[in-house]
């Protein structure tokens, strides 16, 4: 007997419910409910942060002043800005139905979405870094996680994208880094304004086919409704928003760079060390834009910036070493950034 892919279109919801509804499904699927594909759209904008990420990555003052709620999700990824111009989808399966190797699991869960994008005329592909892209532009943000005994992957159809606001909600103290981040967002994050109803239909067909299931409209069970109500309370609590306990960095440890990932392989950072300040954007491992500040370069700052533009990040220290002691201090600031951990 062919099993069912339950499909639930939640329509427009409050920011809180646009998170808790699909988190609630994970508890139902854990308890034996069918694999579920769901859709929702926030009726008002908000900011959402991944399970492990620090709340200090979000400009909370700006969010308060602009009535943007900040919510922490149970799945991965960084802080993101969500609004009505984005249709969110979530695919939720029993954990036993998903490969234990994460990259394999992500590929399995993302490929049907790629198929759906292509069905509606968007030439999407899944790149080696498991981003859904058109060319080198990311067109779908995603995050995944295991919640209880279910695995859920969420993503979005970006019909419109407010790059300015998406950059503005991030806590970025350095104006140069803020500018670099916004420029990279404009270049590497793109909307694909297709008919959302067609996209939803394509998603349902694609996931049902890929999983060997028959799609059928469904609704939340009693257990799931109870879970959603409990999650409503949890997600609004200060303790949940604060995130999992993180140990304080050891005494004397060098402060880490402020890093912002725009898409896989594309990020910015700002760092200060021993009086040297760096703000740089990194694209595919090489420095693109850079702003250096350090005493003692005697008018050679612009020359140092030119010298490292376009070179691989791992070569920066060697090049800056040619600028004497100030260059070595700048190089030490560069070392505090680490691409892979974003």
């Amino acid at each position: 007997m062919v099993e069912t892919l339950r499909v639930i279109d939640f329509g427009e919801n409050s920011p809180l419910r646009s998170q808790t509804l699909w988190h609630g499904i994970a508890y139902g699927v854990s308890a034996g409910e069918a694999a579920t594909l769901s859709f929702t759209r926030p009726v008002t904008p908000y900011v959402c942060i991944g399970y492990h990420r620090g709340i200090d990555e979000v400009d909370q003052d700006y969010c308060r002043q602009n009535a943007l709620p900040v919510l922490r999700r149970m799945v991965g990824g960084g802080p993101v800005y969500l609004d009505k111009g984005q249709l969110f989808f979530q695919i939720c399966l029993a954990a036993r139905a998903v490969p234990a190797a994460r990259r394999q699991a992500l590929r399995m869960l993302l490929e049907p979405a790629v198929t759906a994008f292509r069905t509606v005329g968007v030439p999407a592909s899944l790149d080696d870094e498991l981003e859904i892209c058109v060319g080198d532009r990311k067109i779908c943000g995603h995050g995944a996680g295991q919640i209880d005994d279910a695995v859920v992957l969420c993503g979005n159809l970006i019909e419109t994208f407010d790059h300015d606001r998406a950059a503005r909600v991030l806590a970025i103290a350095d104006p140069a880094q803020r500018g670099q981040t916004l420029a990279l967002m404009r270049r590497f994050v793109a909307a694909t304004p297709v008919d959302p109803a067609r996209f939803q239909a394509a998603m349902i067909s694609s996931y049902a086919a890929a999983l060997g299931l028959v799609a059928a409209a469904g609704e939340l069970t009693g257990l799931e409704r109870t879970a959603v109500e409990e999650l409503d309370e949890k997600f609004e609590s200060a303790a949940w928003l604060a995130g999992p306990d993180r140990p304080a960095p050891r005494a004397g440890a060098e402060p880490r760079a402020r890093q912002v990932k725009v898409r896989a392989g594309v990020w910015t950072f700002a760092a200060k060390r021993d009086g040297a300040e760096v703000a740089a954007s990194i694209v595919r491992g090489s420095v693109e834009q850079v702003r250096l500040r350090v005493g003692g370069l005697n008018g050679s700052t612009r020359e140092a910036e030119r010298a490292i533009r376009g070179i691989p990040l791992h070569s920066v220290a060697q090049v800056l070493g040619g600028f004497g002691e100030p260059g070595r201090r700048l190089a030490a600031a560069f070392v505090t950034a680490e691409a892979g951990r974003l």
Binding site: G50, R102, A144, G145, Q146, P247, P249, R250, A253, R341
Partner: peptide, 27 residues
């Protein structure tokens, strides 16, 4: 968390946690 996927570290034994590696949690 890896590749934007948050998943459980599953215990191979039963007992009580006596220590956690803060250094690994930081880095």
């Amino acid at each position: 968390e890896a590749a934007k996927f948050v998943g459980p570290l599953v215990s191979p034994v039963s007992g009580t946690v006596l220590a956690v590696n803060d250094a690994a949690a930081v880095d």
